[in-house]
Simulated scan of single mutants.
Amino acid sequence: MSVQYYEGVGRRKEATARVRVMSGNGKFIVNDKPAEDYFTRLGDLEAILAPLAAAGEDRSRLDITVQVKGGGVTGQTDAVKLGMARALVKMNADLVAVMRKYGFLTRDARVKERKKPGLKRARKAPTYTKR
């Protein structure tokens, strides 16, 4: 027996998240752990669930499973948020306007700039000494 689910892939910095949304009883699992245990930073879980709130969906009637890898906490949080929005749009195509309005479907393309030769970091030059 297969379960009908809607999948969305989100990326941010070096993080990639595969989010699956299906009808159920409110389970939210991230990398085989409850979401509350995986995203412990204040405000991260609320940011991830913001697309659900904007769509007017009730979390208690949806099961959400997430596989996220790479990056750090902020990158993973934003990747899951984008994946969640994309999965909800696949579930209900009428939500595109709402998701666009709040900016949930826009991928944040900012990544760390590469280090340049002769510099300490991407742009920081060694201290200049006259003598």
Rank of each mutant, 00 (worst) to 15 (best):
P34F: 04
A15R: 00
L42C: 10
A122N: 03
A54E: 11
V73N: 13
D108N: 12
V96M: 12
R131N: 15
R131H: 14
G83T: 05
A87N: 03
R121F: 08
A97E: 14
L88E: 04
Q4F: 10
V73K: 11
V3R: 13
A125E: 10
V96I: 14
L88H: 06
G26K: 08
K112S: 13
G75I: 01
V21Y: 03
M91S: 12
L52D: 04
R61H: 13
R121E: 15
E57R: 11
D32K: 12
K112E: 15
E57H: 08
D58S: 13
G10I: 00
R107L: 07
R61I: 14
L52G: 06
K33D: 05
V21E: 03
D78I: 00
A15P: 00
T127F: 12
F104G: 00
R61T: 15
T16R: 07
Y102Q: 06
G10R: 00
L52P: 01
L52M: 15
R131M: 11
I48W: 01
D94P: 00
V66L: 10
A125S: 13
I29Q: 04
D32L: 13
Y5R: 13
V3D: 12
R121L: 09
E113V: 03
P34T: 04
R100W: 03
R41A: 13
Q4T: 15
R11D: 01
E46I: 08
R59W: 08
V68A: 09
L52E: 07
V66P: 01
L95P: 00
G103E: 07
P126M: 04
D44S: 14
G10N: 01
L88Y: 07
R20A: 12
R86G: 01
P51I: 02
K124I: 08
S23Y: 15
L42Y: 12
P34E: 12
